[in-house]
């Protein structure tokens, strides 16, 4: 395919609330990050790169803007603070105003999206000959005594990270790998840090349990928050009823599992659980169709 990227977008937008590892990386390794971006631009053959930073991080915006003149083609753009701005399609929309078509990749609108961690890793690989053997991980939570961003080797047990941040608080109810919106709950601390581990979030017991589920009151909040323009209340209903064709027609596969609908639902309906279930079933059907 002759689709060539015209843009490189670098996201310095933290994917989720609570996580600050990208922010620290930007502040402490700004030079390296910018060099990494230049390498990426060269590799992709693009002339322009935009670094999107949320405007609640003025220090990072300032620091990178000062550096920007030294790197031709790299611009810094301040973005509104809004979850899920860090999702690539949302980031492209925010910076370029273009929408990536449903079920397509960002290259369709001439964009490639990378995040700051990647830019830094590229820098290290090329300049320092260092493979990706470590990464910055945020360890945080309300009752953690020393919330920190740690540069750790991949493979380090999460337990030792938590020890480093002051130990597991007594009221711990949930340990999440990643952020509060999309992270995975862990059943033990005996797991290693992997390439994608952006943070460890410890929630107290009081915030761990799911809320009591009530009837959908059709308040339309889930519809108005969905960044993909879906109707989560409807999708939940059709997935429960196993009307998979209806789910597909209502674009269940576009759901990026950001969790906004589930978060906002006043009735605490487990919307995302059903969306995931529906996506896996519909995905199955789509794949069989392709194979025939």
């Amino acid at each position: 395919m002759g689709k060539r990227p015209r843009f490189l977008l670098s996201m310095e937008v933290e994917c989720e609330p609570y996580l600050t590892s990208d922010h620290r990386l930007m502040l402490e390794k700004s030079q390296e990050v910018m060099i990494g971006i230049s390498f990426l631009m060269k590799a992709l053959g693009v002339k322009r790169a935009v670094v999107g930073i949320e405007n609640n991080k003025p220090d990072a915006i300032k620091k990178l803007s000062e550096l920007a003149p030294e790197f031709p083609g790299i611009e810094i753009a301040a973005l509104k603070v809004k979850y899920p701005q860090g999702a690539e399609k949302q980031l492209i929309k925010a910076i370029t105003g273009r929408e990536v078509p449903s079920q397509k990749l960002p290259i369709e609108v001439g964009c490639v999206v990378n995040n700051v961690g990647t830019a830094f890793a590229v820098y290290e690989a090329i300049q320092k000959n260092k493979p990706l053997i470590d990464r910055v991980v945020t360890v945080t939570g309300k009752s953690i005594s020393k919330p920190s961003n740690l540069l750790v080797r991949i493979g380090t047990p999460i337990d030792s990270l938590i020890q480093h941040a002051g130990g597991l608080p007594g009221d711990t109810g949930k340990i999440i790998s990643g952020g509060p919106m999309m992270g995975k709950a862990l059943n033990s601390t005996d797991v290693p840090v992997v390439k994608g581990t952006s943070g460890i979030l410890i929630l107290p017991e009081t915030e761990s349990a799911r809320l009591k589920v009530q009837n959908c009151i059709r308040c339309a909040r889930c519809v108005s928050v969905c960044p993909m323009g879906l109707e989560p209340y409807l999708l939940e209903r059709v997935v429960v009823a196993n009307e998979l064709e209806m789910a597909e027609n209502n674009r269940i596969m576009d759901c990026m599992e950001c969790g906004c609908c589930h978060y906002t639902c006043p009735s605490a309906r487990p919307l995302l659980d059903y969306l995931r279930l529906g996506k896996s079933k519909v995905g199955h059907i789509i794949r069989t169709r392709v194979n025939n």
């Binding site: 711990t172 915030e207 761990s208």
Partner: peptide, 22 residues
Amino acid sequence: MQLLTVSGSPHLHATQPVHKIM
């Protein structure tokens, strides 16, 4: 160690439940 809760994301909830709306 006590048992941890394991459930699907998201792990936070908004602060306007049904009874507050009503």
